[in-house]
Amino acid sequence: MQSIAERLKAAQGRINQETALAHRPPNSVQLLAVSKTKPVSDITQAYEAGQRLFGENYVQEGVDKIIQLQALADIEWHMIGPLQSNKTKVVAEHFDWVQSIDRSKIAQRLNDQRPDSMPPLQVLIQLNIDDEDSKSGATPKQLEALIEQIEALPRLVLRGLMAIPKASPTVEEQQRTLGRLQQIFEHYHTKLANFDTLSVGMSGDLGPAIAHGSTMVRIGTAIFGARQ
């Protein structure tokens, strides 16, 4: 069986290969290791292999890990799961990034609850690019207003967009979705100073996502093994 370090190296190698195939600069795509349901010991192994960006889907599980691993000061913790109003305070107090903002109420609460002693919270808007009822996220029509609201909040820095495209699309659907997402991202990337992150792509659609401008891919099972 491969170790976490070996699987991490393989995942990074695949990212590097797809980045080169897309004629993009080396190191222009970051790897977010999705560590949900995995023990702290697995995260420590990945950290020792050089990984620094970790994504958590569940608030309390993520906070527990952050507290247990606070001695590893250079870990960057990303909240990537849906966020309810009653959980914003603990997220604002512990995470470095929130990728799943989908409405102004959540953004306002995160801003108001971010401690002054911490740097501003880096945030992404989750975009429901395929308009699926089963998924969280702002619609493209809601995006402009939400961007304006977040840009006015001093304790948040809007860094870009996160999306989870439809599962098992046809090639045409995938191209259309990723092309539209890239177009929206690039529009705001040219307008806004800090808008530099497009978080899209997992193991199954990593290549097409990188070809369409993803700057961060989220990989879990291929690094840590099957989830509990």
Rank of each mutant, 00 (worst) to 15 (best):
P140A: 14
P165R: 04
P120S: 12
P115A: 02
P119V: 15
L146I: 08
K135I: 10
K135P: 09
E151R: 12
L124H: 01
K141N: 05
K166M: 14
G137H: 10
A145M: 11
E132P: 01
R114H: 00
P140L: 12
D131Q: 13
L121Y: 02
Q108P: 12
M162P: 05
M162C: 00
Q126D: 04
Q108L: 15
R109Y: 00
L161M: 07
I125W: 03
I125K: 04
A167H: 06
Q108M: 03
P115T: 06
S117R: 12
D116N: 14
E151V: 11
G160F: 03
T139I: 03
E151L: 15
G137S: 13
P119Y: 14
S134V: 11
L143R: 03
P120F: 15
P115M: 05
P154M: 03
K141L: 09
I164Q: 00
P154G: 04
E151H: 12
G137P: 08
Q149C: 13
L158R: 06
L146P: 05
I125Y: 03
Q126R: 13
S168V: 12
R155S: 02
S134M: 11
Q108V: 13
E132F: 12
D130H: 11
D112E: 13
M118D: 10
P120W: 11
Q126W: 13
P119W: 10
D116A: 14
L158D: 00
K166A: 08
D116T: 08
Q113P: 04
A163S: 14
D131W: 09
D112A: 10
L153H: 07
L146S: 10
S136F: 14
Q108S: 14
K166T: 02
K135E: 09
V157T: 15
S168Y: 09
I147E: 01
L153E: 10
